[in-house]
């Protein structure tokens, strides 16, 4: 049953949603909508499961005085009160928003900003004309970057035109090809899950 259960659920729910997409039936659509809403509930539960795992992991680390256990203390000191505020006062409350705006927002924005530093490193390290491919990559990258900013137009009106051509023609063609290939991959994997052929997500690979 450990194997058959998930396969059966996958088959039933997947078939209902797909069939309701093709068939004009109000009853079937209503069942399909319900199935889709179950997924939303599962997603919400998964968040709670993830949070529990974090608490377990860090709690265990503190208990066993594991490596860098002090950081686990810091984590729990911030995590638990914030969770409590969210659960008791709700996300609309001034307290929740205060913590969010003073701690979470700047920390999260900082993480994203760091991308620029890593990107700069990559530009320095990777954009070397070692061969023809690397040369094309660098040349087109530079043209698109220049085309995206006003100064490109100031240097020559041909730059934004060339940049647009790269984006509209070369890039679009490439993206469409990858999209078609990737989408077919998604269709194939989705069908395999629904038909119970894909079992890699099960504990023993379905064997």
């Amino acid at each position: 049953m450990k194997k058959e259960g998930p396969i059966l659920i996958g088959f039933l729910t997947g078939s209902i949603v797909i069939t309701s997409y093709f068939l004009k039936s109000t009853g079937l659509k209503s069942i399909s909508d319900t199935v889709v809403r179950w997924r939303l509930i599962i997603a919400a539960f998964a968040l709670a499961l993830g949070a529990l795992n974090m608490v377990r992991l860090h709690g265990k680390n503190i208990h066993h005085k594991g490596r860098n256990w002090q950081y686990s203390v810091v984590f729990l000191v911030f995590f638990l009160p914030y969770l409590a505020i969210g659960l008791i006062r709700g996300s609309n409350s001034a307290q929740y928003q205060y913590v969010w705006k003073s701690l979470y927002q700047p920390a999260s924005a900082t993480m994203y900003s760091m991308t620029l530093f890593y990107m700069t490193n990559a530009v320095w390290r990777a954009f070397r004309i070692r061969n023809l491919h690397a040369g094309i990559l660098m040349f087109t990258g530079a043209a698109v970057m220049l085309g995206q900013i006003g100064i490109g137009t100031a240097i020559s009106p041909l730059i934004p035109r060339f940049s647009s051509w790269l984006l509209d023609t070369v890039n679009t063609a490439g993206i469409r090809a990858i999209t078609i290939g990737g989408s077919l991959g998604i269709v194939s994997l989705g069908l395999r899950v629904i038909l119970g052929l894909e079992r890699s997500y099960m504990s023993d690979g379905g064997n």
């Binding site: 700069t120 530009v123 070397r128 070692r130 660098m138 990258g141 970057m145 995206q148 900013i149 006003g150």
Partner: peptide
Amino acid sequence: SMDAQSAGHIYLLVLMLIGNVSYW
């Protein structure tokens, strides 16, 4: 922010150029 983004792009382009000159 556009000015900052434009300046960042120019900086990266200069970096690409210097990187390649030093590589060659």
